[in-house]
C-alpha cells in the first residue's frame, strides 16, 4: 500500500513537472520601452493600459519647468528614471485658406495621451505626481509576470481537479455497484427453480 502511494505521488509530480516545463520560458531582453496609455479628465489622470516593446524612448531634453512628474521606481523604492511632463490639453488646429491661416487653439478638458518611457528590468511601478507634488497615480509594473505563472498553475489545478473528480465518480459508481450486489441474496438474484414434479 505504501509503495503504491509513493508511485502515485511520483506520477503526480512527474505530470506536474511535464505540464510546467513549457511555462518556464525566458525572453530575450533588448532595447525595450514602456508605452503607457493614460486618460486625463477634469484634473484626474487614470491609467488605461500599457505595452512593453522593443523600441526607442524620446530623450525628453525639453521638459516643462512646472508640470506633472513621473517616476519609475525600483523594488527598493529608489527612483530609477524621472521626467516632467505636461498633459497635452492644447490642440492647435490650423485652417489653410490658400496661404492664409485661421483657426486656433482648443483647450481640452479631457484627453487620452501616451508616454514612451525607457524599460527598466527592475522597475516595480510608475508613480505620477501633480504640480503640487501630490501622488496621483501608481501603476504596478510587476503584475504581468505573476499572471502568466498564475495561468499555468490554474492549468495544473484544473487537471488535478478533473482527475480527482473522475476518480471520485468511478469510486462512487463502484461502491454503489458493490453495495447493490451484497444487499441482494442469491435467491433474489435468481428466481427459485422448481422441478415440474415438485410437491406443492
Amino acid at each position: 500500500m505504501v509503495a503504491l502511494k509513493t508511485i502515485i505521488k511520483k506520477n503526480i509530480l512527474l505530470i506536474i513537472g511535464l505540464i510546467l516545463i513549457p511555462a518556464i520560458h525566458t525572453e530575450a531582453v533588448c532595447n525595450k520601452v514602456f508605452v503607457i496609455n493614460l486618460n486625463y479628465n477634469q484634473g484626474s489622470i487614470t491609467y488605461k493600459n500599457k505595452i512593453i516593446k522593443c523600441g526607442f524612448p524620446p530623450d525628453y531634453k525639453i521638459q516643462p519647468e512646472e508640470g506633472y512628474r513621473l517616476e519609475l521606481m525600483s523594488p527598493e523604492d529608489k527612483v530609477v528614471y524621472s521626467i516632467k511632463f505636461e498633459v497635452p490639453l492644447k490642440a492647435y488646429t490650423d485652417e489653410v485658406n490658400s496661404y492664409m491661416l485661421s483657426g486656433g487653439l482648443l483647450i481640452l478638458n479631457q484627453t487620452d495621451f501616451a508616454l514612451v518611457l525607457p524599460y527598466y528590468e527592475n522597475a516595480k511601478n510608475i508613480v505620477i505626481y501633480n504640480q503640487n507634488n501630490e501622488k496621483i497615480l501608481s501603476i504596478n509594473l510587476t503584475e504581468e509576470k505573476p499572471s502568466m505563472r498564475k495561468q499555468s498553475f490554474i492549468w495544473v489545478l484544473l487537471i488535478l481537479i478533473i482527475t480527482i473528480f473522475i476518480m471520485l465518480l468511478l469510486y462512487r459508481h463502484k461502491k454503489k455497484k458493490y453495495t447493490k450486489t451484497t444487499a441482494e441474496t442469491p435467491l433474489q438474484r435468481y428466481p427459485p427453480f422448481y422441478p415440474p414434479n415438485y410437491p406443492g
Binding site: V33, V35, I51, F56, P58, D112, A114, V116
Partner: peptide, 21 residues
C-alpha cells in the same frame, strides 16, 4: 473630421520603432 485627430497611444507605439522626439 474638421481637424485631424489620431490615437496617440497607437501613434507613439509605432513611432517608437525609431528614435522619436
Amino acid at each position: 473630421k474638421s481637424w485631424i485627430k489620431c490615437n496617440e497611444f497607437k501613434a507613439k507605439t509605432l513611432a517608437s520603432n525609431c528614435p522619436n522626439d
